[in-house]
């Protein structure tokens, strides 16, 4: 046989052996993968309890994160909802009000205008406040007519918006028929600050609870290692490497992570579904077109992936710490 053919033949042989080796390697992993699952399902109660602890610990920050995200969606609308309310003097007639409105419409700083007459204001107040009967007792309508003005804002610069809006408010205050021009952005600012606090709180809480999950899994794996001490000793005696011994425990951690993540997902979805009804009713009363988002694909993947990662790293730490302690004597 010529040399080149020999070499080719050897290479083929080598690649077949490599393929076999890879095949065996993957098969072994697959076996341990399902073996560890089988071991876990032998004691379903303890599996469920450990996974539930992980699930609850992860559901909390996930749920808060989603609520926060929804709040950001609402508050995104708030920027455009920055309104100036012009309360008209009570003596103002509807035609006078219409005159003012056509004046305002000519101003470039103003985006939208909505007129609420005294009668409409009364109706709305009756409907929303629940004081309908009390109002009937009054002879005269106590409410003024209102013109709601929405300033045209630049999307990019919130600060200049605030300044421009302040100027606009002063300008409107001096218009005829206007009693009070009211602009209250303060609460929006406060809301942003509060949301920032909550966001940081969620991050801190997530970190702490992730640590707790790590410890829970670490401790569970530590117990599993201790329960199988004899087995580990025997495997070490007959030449099992640390990698071999570590593998089933790592997969056990993986399964805890996966089940914990799924339980967290279930908890988050059910809790948010329960909350979404009242929340949507609340936002609708603010005339917002808001519909609550439960959980998106991205967050789901993050939750499950993070949970599995925590499971793997928790068991890794436990195995690294305790495997060396167990040696045949």
């Amino acid at each position: 046989m010529p040399d080149s053919v020999m070499i080719l033949h050897q290479q083929q042989q080598a690649s077949i052996e490599m393929g076999n080796w890879l095949h065996t390697y993957l098969l072994r992993h697959l076996q341990v993968f399902f073996y560890s699952l089988g071991q876990l399902t032998r004691s379903p109660l303890s599996l469920l309890m450990t996974s539930a602890v992980i699930g609850i610990a992860l559901a909390l920050p996930t749920g808060l994160h989603i609520i926060l995200k929804n709040m950001q969606n609402i508050s995104g609308d708030l920027d455009s909802a920055a309104q100036i309310s012009l309360f008209l003097k009570k003596s103002t007639s509807d035609t006078q009000a219409q005159q003012l409105i056509s004046q305002l419409k000519a101003m470039p700083q103003i985006n939208k205008i909505k007129y609420i007459s005294r009668e409409q204001a009364l109706q709305e107040f009756k409907r929303l406040s629940g004081f309908g009967n009390a109002l009937k007792a009054l002879e005269k309508n106590p409410l003024p007519a209102v013109i709601v003005v929405q300033p045209s804002l630049s999307q990019s610069n919130a600060l200049s918006n605030t300044k421009a809006t302040q100027q606009l408010v002063e300008q409107l205050q001096n218009k005829p028929y206007v009693d009070i021009a009211q602009f209250d952005m303060q609460w929006v600012k406060r809301l942003y600050t509060i949301m920032d606090i909550i966001r940081r709180g969620v991050i801190i809480l997530s970190a702490l609870l992730a640590l707790a999950v790590l410890l829970v899994i670490g401790n569970t794996i530590r117990l599993a290692i201790q329960n199988r001490r004899d087995e580990i000793v025997i495997i070490k005696l007959i030449g099992g490497t640390d990698t071999f011994i570590r593998r089933p425990f790592l997969y056990t951690g993986f399964w805890y992570g996966l089940f914990g993540g799924l339980i967290a997902l279930f908890l988050v979805i059910t809790s948010l579904l329960m909350l979404s009804g009242p929340i949507e009713a609340l936002t609708q009363s603010y005339e917002s077109q808001f519909s609550m988002q439960i959980i998106d694909v991205n967050s789901t993947l993050w939750l499950i992936g993070g949970s599995i990662l925590l499971g793997l790293s928790g068991s890794w730490v436990a195995v690294e710490r305790h495997l060396r302690e167990i040696e045949p004597t």
Partner: peptide, 11 residues
């Protein structure tokens, strides 16, 4: 079978 499994032999 354990020593063989450790050695990574095929089924």
């Amino acid at each position: 079978a354990l020593p063989l499994v450790i050695n990574g032999l095929s089924h």
